[in-house]
Design a protein around this nucleic acid. Structure first.
Length: 216
DNA sequence: TTCTCGATTACCT
DNA sequence: GGTAATCGAGAAT
């Protein structure tokens, strides 16, 4: 049996099996408002099935986007490219950013509503040697930023429209990893609308944050 | 059919 | 700090 401790502190940090104490997040978890889900996703393990193992780590930074949010891709209604945002809660929404990067989201709220949570950063913990590294990525920064996160975990458009689940390529797990943290909240990054909605959430001062949270 | 621009990042100065 | 890279959706033509 693999324990959390084994997984975290073994030299290889390879995860071949999921500890029995971990619980997979289900649709119910995501069937709530995006800001609430975004906050509660902090510390949750994001794992991607890769070869004969799982790679990933605890989520340390998220952003919420709602249907009545001018900064959201869903604001102007459902289109082919954003249909996954309107899918059942927990559906994977992957989009291309700046023509260069892939960004990973999970649909939240009710089916057809158009809410999602953007995963901005995780702490690279399991299977780091299998992750695609950026040119000068230091260990803590391998999955720091939405584009780097998708590159490292080999996530691209093929995952769009998929669903989280313990048997699927992308899954989310409640564990005791990163449970004890101080919450940081701030303005979302890289948007020009609805700046008053402070829906960026993070683990305060975590080395894998894409950037620091300014003091409010 | 063509143009514009974006929920970013890496690399150059 | 400035900017090139690079591509698809949606708007404009």
């Amino acid at each position: 049996m693999t324990s959390i401790k084994d997984g975290l502190h073994s030299n290889t940090k390879i995860l071949h099996s999921i500890p029995s104490s971990w619980r997979a997040l289900d649709e119910k978890f995501f069937a709530r408002s995006a800001p609430l889900v975004a906050e509660e996703l902090l510390g949750v393990l994001l794992l991607r099935r890769w070869k004969d193992m799982w790679i990933g780590g605890p989520i340390v930074e998220t952003e919420a986007y709602t249907d009545d949010d001018p900064a959201s891709h869903s604001f102007k209604g459902e289109r082919p490219h954003n249909a996954s945002m309107f899918g059942p809660p927990g559906m994977v929404y992957v989009y291309r950013s700046y023509g260069v990067h892939w960004c990973l989201n999970f649909s939240t709220g009710k089916k057809g509503q158009g809410e999602a949570v953007l995963i901005r950063a995780i702490a690279a913990t399991f299977g780091n040697s299998e992750m695609k590294l950026g040119a000068s990525a230091v260990p803590a920064k391998i999955c720091s930023g939405p584009g780097r996160l998708c590159a490292a975990l080999h996530i691209d458009k093929a995952h769009n429209g998929g669903h989280i689940g313990s048997e699927n390529e992308i899954s989310l797990w409640q564990s005791t990893v990163e449970r004890d943290y101080e919450l940081a909240v701030g303005q979302r990054i890289g948007i020009s609308k609805a700046l008053d909605r402070h829906w960026r959430f993070g683990i305060s001062k975590h080395p894998s944050l894409s950037r620091a949270f300014p003091k409010i």
